[in-house]
Design a protein around this nucleic acid. Structure first.
Lengths: 199, 199
DNA sequence: CGATAAGCGGACCGGGCGGTCAACTTGCTA
DNA sequence: TAGCAAGTTGACCGCCCGGTCCGCTTATCG
């Protein structure tokens, strides 16, 4: 990797401040937020932003990558869990929670702005796939539901914050519960359309 | 209202071309798409855009309003339907279908750019609320699910197009089905958090 | 068909954007 | 604590965007 010598103390602090400020700014104004505003919010000069991130897209990619890898780490840890059903629910909870903390709808806007982001996403999807396979074999979700299904379905609860500004802060749990009920084998109705194979 | 004299034939045609071109351009590049590109796509000059829509926001509002009112009309019609369960499913199908035709994720970005848009949205939400009340009384959905719940949940299937570019064109039916299963009373589990009252 | 006003187009403008740079400051190390 | 490389800064640049404007075109109607 490109692990050169460690950052100077103040540089490391500024980098962290910038990532936080950028996430907040993007949450409030979308990806259109200006680099100058981000710098002001972080309390640094504009030049400092470009020293840490050569372009605005690099800054965006750094944030997105951070979130994806955080989720991937949680998923990986849950692979060793004893109860596959609880593991899947816990993962989906973590995903919804992450989206809820800050408004992360700009992640949708961002897409895969850098190839590394796509790579990380694919890796995380693979983890989810395994998580779902185990839950299915364990009998806690329908036999006709795939990992891809769950990946797409799990987008929904996170949008709550955005759509309903003054909602209770853990309302997303309610929607996660409804969707999880739809995944359960008990009251399952036959599904149209065979699922596609992501990856 | 401001119903002045009818548009000239060519002007009406250009207005329609512009709305379509703008929807396509916003779908491809987000709300950041430039007015000049929209004009080029519609085959008209940039000045023509501003003749029909004084500002870019007015153009955005016109598109959003169009989609909301189309959905609202469908909902209104379904209020007179005999089977409340089928009516609700049909409405949700129409909503997902609309989102699928073009990538409408930029609607999220837009928010209520003009007060009239908020008004129209509130009106549509009220229609959905009635639709859901009837379905609940009919026993086809859980007693603890509200209109607001359905409004938020119905966002999910539409995002399929955006997240999975090469998916089958009617894959959203699959996700709508799963969510609808989660709404059914049969395998329902108790829900956390009392629902908020939208409106 | 001719007059007229509604509609059209694209050069043009000011502002704000992403990105650069050279002078200055500061944490690290010997 | 002296020296220096790493880090910071904000004025600056060129580009592109939303929006204006006015000379030209054309649908409409008596």
């Amino acid at each position: 990797m490109t692990t050169s010598r460690p950052l100077r103390a103040d540089a490391a602090r500024n980098r962290a401040l910038l990532l936080a400020a950028a996430a907040d700014e993007f949450a409030e104004h979308g990806l259109g937020a200006s680099v100058a505003d981000i710098a002001r919010r972080a309390g640094v000069g504009k030049g400092t932003v470009f020293r840490h991130f050569p372009t605005k897209d690099d800054l965006i990619a750094a944030i997105v990558l951070d979130r994806i890898q955080a989720l991937a780490a949680i998923g990986e840890r849950l692979l060793d869990s004893g109860d596959p059903g609880a593991a899947l629910l816990e993962f989906l909870t973590a995903a919804a929670q992450q989206r809820q903390q800050r408004d992360l709808s700009f992640l949708q806007e961002a897409g895969d702005v850098r190839p590394e982001v796509g790579k990380a996403r694919t890796a995380m999807f693979q983890t989810i796939d395994t998580l779902v396979d185990r839950a299915r074999e364990y009998g806690v979700i329908r036999t006709d539901v795939t990992g891809t299904d769950v990946i797409l379905l799990m987008c929904a609860p996170g949008y709550v914050a955005n759509s309903l500004p003054d909602a209770a802060p853990d309302l997303w749990r309610r929607y996660l519960a409804i969707i999880f009920d739809g995944l359960r084998p008990e009251g399952a109705h036959p599904l149209p359309q065979p699922p596609p194979d992501l990856l």
